[in-house]
Structures are given as C-alpha cells and as structure tokens.
C-alpha cells in the first residue's frame, strides 16, 4: 500500500486509486445502476411498504401467534436441517477429498444436483417419495413415522437444498490441509482421533460455519420444494414464505411486507455473520 500522489483532476480519480486500466467509470456506473434498479430499489420499496405500518405495527405482525409460529418453524427447522446438512456435508466432503473409490467423480458431481434441479421438481419428487404410499413413505409409515405433510417433510426438503452448500464450502479446505501436520501429529504419538479433533478440525470450523449459515439462509427462504411436501397447517407446518403468499391472497400487503422485511433483516444478519466468520478466519488462520 504505497501512498501514490493523487492527481486532482476529477472526483472519480479521487474516489478510486489511479490505474492505467480504463473503463472504471462505465463499468462501475453500470454495476451501480443495475444493482440499484434491480435489487436495491425493489427492496427499498418493500421496506417502505412495511415501514408504513411503523415499528410497532411490524412488531404486532411479528408477534401475531400464527406469524410467530411460522417464523419459528422456518427458522427452527432450517437450523436443524442446516445442522444435519453440515454434519453429513462434512462427512461427504471428507470422503470425496480424502478417499479414492470407484465412482467418486460421479458422486462428486451428484452433490450439486439440488443446485441444478428446479425446486418445484424437487418438491413433487420428494412428495411422491415420502407420501404414505410412496417408495420411502410406505415403509416409514409402517414404522409409525410420517414424513410428508409434517414438519419432518419440511426438514427433509431443507436438508436436500442445503446439502451442496455444506459440502462445497468445506471441500476445498479439506483438500488444502497440509498432510505433514497430520503426520507430525501422528509421529508425536497422537491417536488418529486426537489428530482429527485437535489438529485437522479446528482450522475447518470457519468453513463449516459458513456452510451452515448458507444452508440455513437458503432453507429459511425456500418455498418451491417445501410447499408440496409440508402439510401447510397453521402452527404446525406452515413456513414463513407460504404465509407471505397467503397474506398476499388475503390482500394484506402490509402484513406480507412486514414478514418479508423481517426475513430480509435476518438474511442480512446471516450474510453479515458469514462475512464476520470469514474475516475472523482470515485473521486466525490466514485464509477463508
């Protein structure tokens, strides 16, 4: 970071650090224009609509028992699903990076399926699998477990969509681990378990947390794959995004905007948390 003398020719020049590369004005301007028109303006419109209710009005919507329970279900089940996705995601990432076995590349490619498969398709497929007469639903029903049309169904759908996030955030880091450290640890007499928990795992924690946060954020907002498999029963299996759709159908724009704003706020916080985790990890471990 050498201090370069600043030519005081234009505002733009003082804004950015000088460079011989052209095109800053146009590319930066275009970026801001698109961002403003497509993302920021509409989101501002949403917040403006919600703020029409006032803070107390938003609070009233948020604490309405049905809304509160939908938010609780969305956030609660999503957290649980993200937890499970993170755990299995870690296992999958570990297996895919560390072990060689036939079909490994195929399995690796399959991890991204939930990204590529449209959510509505995933929704009807999951519903047909887990319905009481479905391929997986029937045996589960005999065990007395009902998946479709209960919060368990929401959980399954959320694990489905969250899994790739959990795998893909830790996978590159597992690949980067310096094997010599593990070997050193082993030579110094640590058991494999101790090596894993004391040497291998700690530097991976930020990535696991990031994966968790991403899966969580995605699960909270998910709609398409869930509505087909959740029972959509108020207080039991009604998710917040569905409640927004219902509020719109009831012509309650303010209420819908309020729920949306609450969810948006939490999205912001999740993104912020991810950035903080990454900043902390950069300080602590020197990489993200």
């Amino acid at each position: 970071m050498v201090e370069t003398p600043r030519p005081k020719t234009s505002l733009l020049r003082t804004f950015r650090r000088p460079s011989v590369i052209p095109g800053f004005g146009i590319s930066f301007g275009y970026t801001l224009t698109c961002l403003g028109l497509i993302v920021l303006l509409p989101l501002a419109g949403l917040v403006a609509k919600a703020s029409g209710l006032g803070l107390s009005g938003i609070w009233e919507v948020a604490t309405d028992p049905r809304v509160a329970s939908a938010l609780r279900i969305s956030f609660g089940v999503s957290a649980l699903a993200a937890l499970v996705a993170s755990a299995f995601g870690f296992l999958v990432a570990w297996v895919l990076t560390r072990y060689r076995f036939p079909g490994r590349k195929l399995v690796d490619a399959a991890v991204d399926l939930p990204f590529a498969l449209p959510t509505a398709v995933a929704g009807i497929a999951l519903a047909s699998l887990y319905a009481p007469d479905g391929l997986l639903g029937a045996p589960l029903a005999r065990l007395g477990i009902q998946v479709a049309y209960t919060p368990v169904g929401i959980f399954i759908a959320m694990v489905f969509i969250g899994l790739p996030f959990a795998v893909r955030t830790v996978q590159p880091l597992i690949a980067e681990i310096d094997k010599e450290i593990e070997e050193a640890s082993a030579t110094l007499g640590a058991t494999r378990l101790v090596t894993l928990t004391k040497v291998v795992l700690p530097p991976l924690i930020p990535a696991v947390l990031t994966g968790f946060a991403l899966a969580f954020a995605r699960g909270v907002g998910e709609y398409g794959s869930i509505i087909f498999i959740a029972g959509n029963l108020p207080y039991v299996s009604e998710i917040a995004p569905l409640l927004i759709v219902i509020k719109l159908s009831e012509f309650d724009y303010g209420g819908a905007a309020a729920i949306a704003t609450i969810m948006l706020g939490i999205s912001f916080l999740t993104l912020l948390a991810i950035n903080l985790i990454q900043a902390w990890s950069r300080r602590r471990f020197g990489y993200v």
Binding site: G221, I244, S267
Partner: peptide
C-alpha cells in the same frame, strides 16, 4: 439476492 427468499 442469494439469501432473499424467492417469494420475497
């Protein structure tokens, strides 16, 4: 937009 619910 990654973390905004599609419905929103």
């Amino acid at each position: 937009p990654f973390s905004v619910s599609p419905v929103v």
